[in-house]
Nucleic acid binder design. Structure first.
Length: 343
DNA sequence: GAGGCGTGGAG
DNA sequence: TCTCCAAGCCT
């Protein structure tokens, strides 16, 4: 029995009691779905979404046939909504042009919308057993520590891919890929890695040099700016609230929203000039803060009742049916705040 | 290639 | 409260 590094890791992986819903699944559809959901998203966040999607749309054909709004609403809260738009496009492409079959090699998978280098390699390895080099943030962190790579990311990426390729085994490439990622997620963590129980502690150069926890080195990120705006909580005589659909591309693209002013560097002097209708707008106390990847958003709320005259563009939605709509988390925060302060 | 693109959990 | 950042992709 050879005792290579991949072998040691696979022994650890096979003994690990941690069971993730997608572990052991090789259906390309399920693998693809889980990998897309896991892009930049924690395991804990993905688990309930993965279960709901698979229960509601068990095949790529069923997902392709689903109304776009239903998919976006089911994705609401998971973030990075371009993934959901690409998910739909990819399901339709695979269904209509490939008879529901996913490409079986990296190059073919790489052509699918929303499938980049990482996801293509992951699907090829996990669903099709191919010896693909799977490199995500976990793999990069593990490789930098194992080999004490001190060059900062992202410059070190090519080197890290080489190091990952040199370790990738011919057999069980899918299990191996998941094992490295599990190692990074549970033991070789960004902070306070549990080196004492790591199956790779003996060969780890970063640990030997006492620098593992400081790796990988990264370049500094720019400060996060703050943007301001005012949202408009408009209700009608039937107790419904006005929603709008956001533009199909860009931030929260294709999702629903509470109408608001533009989000700018300073609070608009007269927010009501940008309100959906002219009305007796009254400011609610407090504000809603939300952190996006590249800026912080501080939103005030103004509320009004629509008279019989106003004909704002948008969608009137019953308060108890807001949950059925594709409202991203920042909009759900607004709803909660408005309901607490306006009644 | 650098920046846009969500969210929630951990420390 | 604040910082970090996670199984990345697209332009």
């Amino acid at each position: 029995m050879p005792d290579t590094l991949p072998d040691r890791l696979l022994v650890w992986y096979d003994r690990d009691a941690r069971t993730l819903p997608w572990r052991g699944l090789t259906d390309p559809y399920a693998v693809w779905l889980s990998e897309v959901m896991l892009q930049q998203t924690t395991v804990a966040a993905v688990i309930p979404y993965f279960a709901r999607f698979l229960a509601r749309w068990p095949t790529v054909e069923s997902l392709a046939a689903a109304p776009t709004d239903a998919v976006m609403a089911e994705w609401a809260g998971l973030g990075y909504y371009a993934r959901a738009r690409n998910l739909i496009a990819c399901a339709k492409l695979v269904t209509q042009w490939r008879n529901g079959r996913f490409p079986e090699d990296e190059a073919g998978l790489r052509q699918l919308p929303g499938v980049g280098d990482y996801t293509a390699a992951a699907i090829a390895a996990i669903a099709f057993g191919q010896k693909a080099v799977v490199v995500d943030g976990n793999v990069e962190r593990v490789m930098t520590r194992l080999h004490a790579v001190q060059e900062p990311l992202p410059k070190a990426k090519p080197r890290l891919k080489q190091l990952a390729a040199a370790l990738t085994p011919d057999l069980r490439a899918g299990d191996y890929a998941q094992a490295v990622m599990d190692l990074g997620a549970t033991i070789c963590t960004p902070r306070k890695p549990a080196c004492g129980i790591c199956p790779w502690q003996e060969p780890c150069e970063g640990r030997r040099l006492g620098i593992a926890e400081r790796l990988p080195a990264k370049l500094e990120k720019p400060a996060r700016p703050i943007r301001f705006g005012t949202a408009f909580w408009l209700t009608d005589s039937k107790g419904r609230v006005l929603l709008r659909r956001r533009p199909p591309q860009g931030l929260l693209g294709g999702m629903m929203e509470i109408p608001s002013t533009e989000w700018s560097e300073t609070q608009p002097a007269d927010p009501t000039a940008q309100a959906p209708i002219t009305a007796d707008w009254r400011a609610l106390p407090g504000e809603v803060r939300h952190i996006f990847t590249h800026f912080q958003l501080n939103l005030r709320i103004m509320a009004a009742k629509a008279g019989p005259g106003g004909r704002p563009s948008g969608l009137w939605v019953e308060l108890d049916r807001l949950g059925e709509h594709a409202l991203p988390t920042v909009m759900r925060k607004l709803v909660r705040h408005a309901l607490a302060k306006a009644y």
